[in-house]
Amino acid sequence: MSEKLINTIAEMQEEEALALAKELLASGTPPSTILDDCRSAMEIVGKRFEEGQYFIAELILAGEMVKAISTEVKPHLKISQATQKGSKVVVGTVKGDIHDIGKDIVVFMLDVNGFEVYDLGIDVPPQTFVDKIKEVKPVVVGLSGFLTLSFESMKETVAAIKAAGQRDSVKIMVGGGTVDERVCEYAEADAFGIDAMTAVSLAKGWTK
């Protein structure tokens, strides 16, 4: 674990964080350790957000840093053998919500575990999910949300998938910020995941 990497990310020192991550990688630090540090830093960022110290800019910048570090680290990671490569997952932050940190971590974790991830980005309208599902025929759909307004958007999205006749062809997982089991039930999704690890194990379970 690199306390310094965690701190530079948490303190929004973008250039330092990226340089340090490269340095760590070059000096033989296991990629998984670097990613763990990213997650630890994200926890701090999330906590500061909750405490009203950090706002949208910090969430976005932290997401950017983790994205950049992930790109560096990814080629050095061994792809897990457990999952058949190529199972498709469509992921996005639902309509009205612009938060992407949680989603980005989920995308990353799915990606390094061998899934073919289609990231629709943030503030994704239900129809965009439907269109993508029809296009790529994924096994799993992940709906991310941070704000409470995402509850309604998740419900709308699941309903739109159902209305498009695609509900039976996909498993839908929800997660992020204020989302919990109750929201999963309200939105009529299949499962709720508390973190990116759960997202991976859910997806693996559905693609066996």
Partner: peptide
């Protein structure tokens, strides 16, 4: 855009 300007405050 929102994302752009938020990053601009830092970058």
């Amino acid at each position: 855009g929102l994302r752009g300007i938020m990053l601009d405050m830092y970058r």
